[in-house]
Computed example of a mutant assay.
Amino acid sequence: MIEVRDIRKTFTVRSGLLRRTRTAVRAVDGVSFTVREGEFVGYLGSNGAGKSTTIKMLTGILTPTSGSVRVAGLDPSRRRTALARRIGVVFGQRTTLWWDLPLRDSLTLIRHLYRVDAGEHRRRLEELTGLLDLGPFLATPVRQLSLGQRMRGDLAAALLHDPPLLVLDEPTIGLDVVSKATVRGFLERLNAERGTTILLTTHDLGDIERLCRRVMIIDRGRLAYDGDLDRLRASVAADRMLVVDLVRPAPPVQLDGVGVERVDGPRQWLRVPRGMNAAAVVAALARRYEIADIALREPDIEEVVTRLYRRGGSPGPE
Rank of each mutant, 00 (worst) to 15 (best):
S235W: 07
A234H: 14
G265Q: 09
R79V: 05
L168P: 06
F91I: 10
L199Y: 08
G221F: 13
L18E: 00
P102Y: 12
E193I: 11
L131M: 02
L145A: 02
G92P: 02
P64K: 07
D256G: 01
H112N: 07
L134R: 09
V41R: 12
A292H: 14
T59G: 02
R311I: 04
V263N: 03
G221D: 05
T129S: 07
M276G: 05
Y309V: 01
C212G: 03
P136E: 02
D219K: 09
G60F: 12
L109D: 01
N47M: 10
R123K: 06
D228P: 11
P317H: 07
L74V: 06
R20K: 15
I2C: 01
A24K: 14
Q144D: 11
R194L: 14
G42P: 11
G92S: 03
L187E: 10
T63P: 06
G45D: 07
G88P: 12
S106L: 08
G88Y: 15
G119L: 10
R288S: 10
L200W: 14
F91N: 05
G48W: 12
L223Q: 01
H203G: 08
H121Q: 07
T202Q: 15
Y225E: 01
M57C: 09
A118E: 00
G153H: 15
V69E: 01
L199D: 00
R307T: 01
V304D: 03
V253Q: 00
L159P: 01
Q93Y: 10
A292R: 13
T21A: 11
G206D: 13
R297F: 13
R70L: 09
G275V: 00
L83C: 03
L113G: 01
L190N: 07
E120R: 11
S66G: 09
S68M: 05
R287V: 05
